[in-house]
Design a binder for these strands. Structure first.
Length: 548
RNA sequence: GGGUCUGUGGCCUAGUUUGGAUAAGGCACCGUCCUUCUAAGUCGGUGAUCGGGGGUUCAAAUCCCCCCAGGCCCGCCA
């Protein structure tokens, strides 16, 4: 959990002795520029005006309240800038961050990406990784003990097609991603002439479940090659997944046995096939008529495994898995009686304008390609700026800018909303973008680097200083909201809004040329901003640069 | 066909959970500001009956109903 001086809560508490008591939820953060906090008093119709006045007076008396005025059914509360300053200053002086994180004993696992290792990761898939990685970072920032998982599918028809395609169309070739992908696309192109999926993959499935250890190893080997490529790509985007859990590991596992035990009498049978019946009428199959097991079983075993180590299990899934998530959300707690928190973060797809993304059909834009173009674009911009940075510095700037831009342009959109991939937007570096944030950070670094420090502090604050302090004060609120709703885009909007208020401050408040007390205060405000914006960007996997 | 999610200026996005004070940003376009700490920036301007229609309410982008358009799902695939 987060620890900070919650002024809204203090206002609510202070009204406990009044006729009109308000809750923290009655105190809203103003978004229209009337005040800092706002209370909608028109909601309290059954209270006489005198109660509202008493409420207003009580709030106005609080030591951190600058002003509390009642107008047109609203209570507009303005907080003292010096209070905001000291709240943030104290936290950063004490623990180096605002707000402070109190380690929660609950263990959280975020499973994300989990793309079939049948080819390089493409732009349609990357949203999963970016959202998943950001959510994991936000949970960790909030105070949970977080781990990340990638569930590697090396047991299904797709990977068998990958293996078989390589054997048939690339016999004797070197085991590379390109050759594997070629074989994979070829086998799907010729599937009809070969007699269909059952004829081609069926025999492999049987051998797989025996299990034929040699086959298992060979398939896993093929998957490893592709997975290595995926890992490298993810790493470039600062997505580092802690554990890769192999699906084949559950084939003969204790967990798999326990899944069947726990499901017990819930399992129905029809023509030797085993299935579960959902309350909404759907049948979910566990075992085929020929005795081979379906993905659901292995995934249930994997989830059982997760409950042995974690308290909160978060799955990041594409919208095509919405119904599947509903199934898991029912089977795990209700049929298997697992008493843990299962949460599903469903996101909509990134589509290509006019065409559909498909690894099988070869219609993809790979993330490698996206990063490459992003790097070229960023390098071009860095050169154009005409700074006197050396080659190494330029490369570093271009790399971080490219990665940050790509991540930001994906993460800033509400996961629920679909994204159409457009090059111009994917690599956007102006306006509402990562470089806009990074640039203001670089400027703040420059301010601190150039001027003289001062221990003196001033006692009054200007409009822009106050606005910046207020927005910084609100940081914990946004961390909480984005954690609770599993929406990293809220952190992205926050970072943009905070940067805008910093830019206002920057353009109207001179720091280094000011008198000692003003300079001392302003430099400290700049330090606070740097700490907070870097923290926020960090939750989105964006690394700040001291200069750019 | 059934289910589900989405629809906000020319384009992209926030606001919808918990209905209220001028619908907020960005891109593009027009104009402003580098002899003040980095112009990837700043300031100003043009531009929205919030998909359409009904309803509830003193009050609707927000809640309810119907319709339209688009995404996704409806496998003994994963």
């Amino acid at each position: 959990m987060l620890i900070y001086d919650d002024l809204g809560k203090r206002i609510a508490t202070s009204t406990s002795g009044l006729k009109l008591k308000i809750e923290k939820t009655d105190i809203e953060i103003d978004s229209r520029g009337f005040a800092d906090f706002v209370v909608k008093t028109f909601k309290f119709k059954d209270h006489p005006v005198s109660d509202i006045t008493a409420l207003s007076d009580a709030i106005a008396k609080l030591d951190f309240v600058e002003e509390c005025s009642s107008t047109g059914g609203y209570l507009n509360i303005k907080v003292k800038a010096e209070k905001l300053y000291s709240i943030i200053d104290d936290a950063i002086s004490g623990v180096g961050m605002y707000p402070e994180t109190f380690q929660d004993p609950e263990r959280v696992v975020v499973e994300h990406t989990s793309a079939n290792p049948t080819g390089p990761i493409h732009v349609g898939r990357i949203r999963n990784s970016i959202i998943g990685d950001s959510v994991a970072r936000i949970f960790a920032r909030y105070g949970y003990r977080v781990s990340t998982h990638y569930f590697v599918n090396d047991s299904g028809k797709q990977v068998m097609a990958l293996y078989e395609g390589f054997v048939r169309y690339c016999k004797g070739c070197e085991l590379t991603v390109e050759n594997l992908l070629h074989g994979y696309q070829e086998i799907y192109r010729h599937m009809e002439e070969l007699g269909g999926e059952t004829a081609v993959i069926g025999p492999l499935l049987k051998r797989y479940e025996l299990p034929d250890v040699k086959l298992l190893e060979e398939i896993k080997g093929a998957c490893s090659v592709v997975l290595k490529n995926i890992k490298e790509t993810l790493g470039q985007l600062h997505v580092n997944i802690e554990d890769y859990i192999w699906e084949s590991g559950f084939l003969q596992s204790e967990e798999l046995v326990e899944v069947f035990e726990r499901l017990g009498t819930h399992i129905k049978e029809e023509k030797k096939a085993k299935f579960l019946e959902m309350p909404w009428g759907k049948k979910e199959y566990l075992v085929r008529s020929d005795g081979t097991k379906l993905y659901l079983v292995r995934d249930l075993a994997y989830h059982l495994f997760k409950t042995e180590h974690f308290d909160v299990i978060v799955d990041v899934l594409g919208e095509d898995h919405r119904d599947y998530a509903k199934t898991l959300g029912y089977v795990l707690p209700d049929l298997m009686e697992l008493d843990k928190r299962f949460e599903f973060l469903i996101y909509s797809f990134i589509s290509l304008e006019g065409s559909k993304l498909s690894t099988r059909q070869g219609n993809i834009i790979t993330v490698e390609e996206l990063i490459k173009k992003g790097l070229e674009e960023a390098s071009r911009i860095v050169s154009e700026k005409g700074n006197d940075y050396d080659e190494k510095t330029r490369e570093k700037i271009a790399k971080e800018v490219a990665v940050a831009s790509i991540r930001f342009n994906v993460v800033r959109v509400n996961p629920q909303k679909a994204i159409v991939f457009r090059w111009g937007e994917a690599l956007n570096t102006e306006g509402d973008s990562a470089p806009f944030i990074m640039y203001s950070y670089a400027r703040s670094s420059s301010i601190l680097e150039k001027g003289e420090p001062s221990e003196k502090r001033k006692s009054s604050y200007g409009k822009e200083e106050k606005a910046l302090l207020w927005n910084m004060y609100l940081f914990p609120d946004f961390i909480e909201k984005s954690m609770n709703s599993k929406r990293p885009d809220l952190i992205a909007s926050y970072a943009l809004a905070l940067t805008k208020t910093f830019n206002d401050f920057y353009s109207s408040c001179q720091v280094n040329v000011a008198e000692d007390d003003i300079r001392g205060t302003r430099r400290r405000i700049v330090e606070m901003y740097r700490t907070i914006i870097k923290d926020a960007a960090g939750m989105l996997g964006i690394n700040m640069l001291e200069r750019m």
